[in-house]
Design a binder for these strands. Sequence first.
DNA 1: CAAATAGTGTCTCTAAGACATTATTAG
DNA 2: CTAATAATGTCTTAGAGACACTATTTG
Lengths: 248, 248
Amino acid sequence: MTSEREFLDAYDPRAFPATAVTVDVVALTIRDGRLHLLLIERGEHPFAGTRALPGGFVREETLEEAARRELAEETGLRPENLGRVHLEQLGTFGDPGRDPRMRVVSVAYLAFAPSLPDPRSGGDATAAGWFPVDEVGSLAFDHGDIVAAGLERARSKLEYTPLATAFVGPEFTIAELRSVYSAVWGEDLHAGNFHRKVLSVPGFVESTGATTERGGERGGPRARLYRAGDARLLHPALLRPTSEDGVR
Amino acid sequence: MTSEREFLDAYDPRAFPATAVTVDVVALTIRDGRLHLLLIERGEHPFAGTRALPGGFVREETLEEAARRELAEETGLRPENLGRVHLEQLGTFGDPGRDPRMRVVSVAYLAFAPSLPDPRSGGDATAAGWFPVDEVGSLAFDHGDIVAAGLERARSKLEYTPLATAFVGPEFTIAELRSVYSAVWGEDLHAGNFHRKVLSVPGFVESTGATTERGGERGGPRARLYRAGDARLLHPALLRPTSEDGVR
DNA sequence: CAAATAGTGTCTCTAAGACATTATTAG
DNA sequence: CTAATAATGTCTTAGAGACACTATTTG
């Protein structure tokens, strides 16, 4: 029951059991055609020596600002240079006991980034790096669950939003875009049908008029270049190949 | 090097600023063919006399348990009788200043319920009630934003999940289901096409073999009764009538 | 030259939506 | 009887996917 007592207690921040609020970031990028995840190696207990998501305590800032700050710190980029990085709230994880020290409620964020340099230039002592998502072992805390939620959200987002463009540079070819879908979905897509489909969705991409300087490494014509269009939703959606028909 | 055990024993949970963590619940139901929202009237400052979402501080429990508990308290139902109520995490709202007293991070939950009795039987002093969503004025804190997020989530969820069945009883007619879609989407749907569509999606509904006892109040044949099927996703989805083609 | 790739054309099948039709009930 | 509604049928069109094909480039 939300009693008066509880509300009065709220005026004294020390009167109820301390709860910490953190943010954790599931940052995804694509390197060499494979989906990668940003991880750090913890230097302190608990889970010292185990890999974990980048994150930390929320300060006097919005939750999204905290996530952007943590991401900037670990990637070595300045926050203002994270402009092309897509960031969205993923979910909040707060089971009692998920952190052995105390009650910690963590707001998880999901980030889509174009290929970024290796971390560590930040000078921080934490060993951070990009790891292929299918080679990530067990993680600290409940970060494995958080990553699983992030991957599922990412796969779903590619279906009905143009966010695949957040993984590539400002100008890209249809084949690069297809490579993003293949990496995130883990499935090969039919080149011809994908091409026609992308161009048929209004506002998904718009032509720059230019083409690549060279053809593919193993032959093939030059490809036309596109940039992201102004659509925020894909109509009609670009659905995943039907793995099994409906989750039952 | 200290062991993890020693580290935890020496850990002081009070070593950093406390933040309050609450849950707020956007509980939706359908009454008389219109979408309704559960609200309370605040008895205390801040926002005394203003309507707000039911919610409160998180205790030694999971976040979802906290949401279920708050919902049970305000509806007067026992938590174990909330079995047919769908509950999912909606998002977390934590801007500094959203609560004038202190930093409060609120985890919002979204609930879909079949028509429930009027609250207040719970005996609590808070004046709670169901209000049509299109007659909800301004709310306390940032609860207006939370409600907007909940409504958009609900509209979207009806498209690709069978959660419309959470708004009706265990047995229902196709027309009742259509009424749910109409109420949530705010649009009339074509009866014939809707009927065929629902039956064509595998696992959405399954027939009970029975029919209603009587026809409609103003005539018409008896309708067949269905219960929810075992699908957790609708394939293919039941898309909203295209309001505008793509949000730009 | 051969191999690879960009981009387009064609065909089939599914599904959505507009609309009509029949059967069954209340009043 | 009439009005309303459940359930089904028909037709048109959009879109997904399989597949073929042409043009262009690399080595």
